[in-house]
């Protein structure tokens, strides 16, 4: 069994999202809590800017929950940079216990799932979960210098500059985490680093199929099924793969990365990065749940667990996907 039902149903009582200027001009722009005017965010380096985004997201979520930093018992966070420095350095700024997670772009679901399980077990009271990504830090770590005059291939995706944080607790108001499904590492041998969607789609298909089977549900039972950053190609592959497994995704399925930018913004297959699903969940989905638009949401972002070293040595790209079920007013 990969799926757990959480009896005590921890709630997301506070959330905050922050995004960069390009991201702010996208379709989700009006839902983000804060839009940066400049990618550098007044810092000396882009790494510092990414850290500042995370700090603001964490502080914002705690304030949104009506709590103080001292009320938080644990911080769960992760990011894309080597040794997850953005998260660790953010935790350094707050005086609270910290567990670093690495689930690549699936980190938002991973942190919420781990946090929800810990709270459900009665071990913690208030937990903050956060993640973020920055286009310029990811580019230099995984790809080329920003000013290099090269062309992007049609399957590539644009790492979003965005961050999101949620506060979990048993007390308060907000969407409840009813179930969590932890995913397996799935690798079907895609080694093209410019085609992350195809590399991660099998992991999403595996986790979602396991979730539907174990909970005896169908895709129609949800108002919204949302993956993280599969992009255009990846989400089309996911639809195909799930159909082959006997689950038909309908109009209630969407991908954060695929809808993150408009076509004019030239992001090829769409947005990617931890920040894509984190900011859409905390900016758009939770607000829409509170407004009563969505009652049951299956949130299943995917992560590509590769490193530039492994890719250069010819290794294929393993993918992972964790799913959480959010319910409000059911």
């Amino acid at each position: 069994m990969q799926t757990f039902k959480l009896k005590n149903r921890p709630k997301i009582i506070g959330s905050y999202s922050i995004a960069g200027p390009k991201e702010g001009k996208g379709p989700f722009g009006k839902y983000f809590d804060y839009i940066m005017k400049c990618d550098r965010f007044g810092e000396k380096t882009y790494e510092q800017a990414e850290r500042k985004m995370l700090e603001i997201a964490v502080t914002g979520a705690i304030q949104n929950a009506g709590l103080m930093v001292s009320d938080i018992n644990l911080m769960l966070a992760g990011d894309l940079l080597n040794q997850i420095i953005s998260s660790s350095y953010t935790a350094r700024a707050f005086n609270m216990p910290f567990l670093g997670l690495f689930g690549a772009c699936s980190t938002m679901a991973e942190s919420l799932a781990v946090g929800a399980v810990l709270i459900n077990g009665g071990h913690y009271k208030n937990v903050v979960c956060a993640t973020g990504s920055h286009f310029s830090t990811a580019e230099r770590q995984f790809r080329f210098p920003l000013e290099l005059g090269c062309q992007r291939v049609p399957t590539s995706q644009w790492t979003v500059t965005a961050s999101g944080a949620s506060v979990l607790s048993l007390e308060g108001e907000g969407p409840e985490i009813a179930m969590v499904t932890f995913g397996k590492v799935i690798d079907l041998g895609i080694s093209d680093v410019n085609n992350m969607g195809a590399a991660m789609a099998p992991a999403a298909a595996d986790t979602l199929a396991a979730h539907f089977k174990e909970t005896k549900q169908n895709p129609e039972d949800y108002d919204l099924i949302v993956t993280g950053d599969l992009g255009k190609l990846g989400s089309e592959i996911l639809i195909d793969m799930l159909e082959a497994k006997g689950f038909k995704l309908g109009k209630n399925y969407s991908d954060c990365g695929h809808s993150f930018f408009t076509r004019k913004q030239d992001a090829m297959c769409g947005g990617s990065g931890c920040g894509a699903s984190a900011s859409v969940l905390n900016g758009y989905i939770i607000k829409k749940m509170k407004a009563g638009v969505f009652k049951r949401v299956l949130f299943a972002p995917t992560g590509a667990l590769m490193s530039p070293t492994a890719s250069q040595q010819g290794e294929s790209i393993p993918g992972i996907s964790h799913a959480i079920v959010l319910e409000m007013g059911v």
Partner: peptide, 22 residues
């Protein structure tokens, strides 16, 4: 755990779906 045949089939399927540069 690697399944060579499954991987080959998936790679071929993805290759066919990839949007091509004009």
């Amino acid at each position: 755990m690697k399944n060579e045949k499954l991987n080959e089939a998936y790679n071929a399927y993805v290759e066919a779906r990839i949007p091509k540069t004009k």
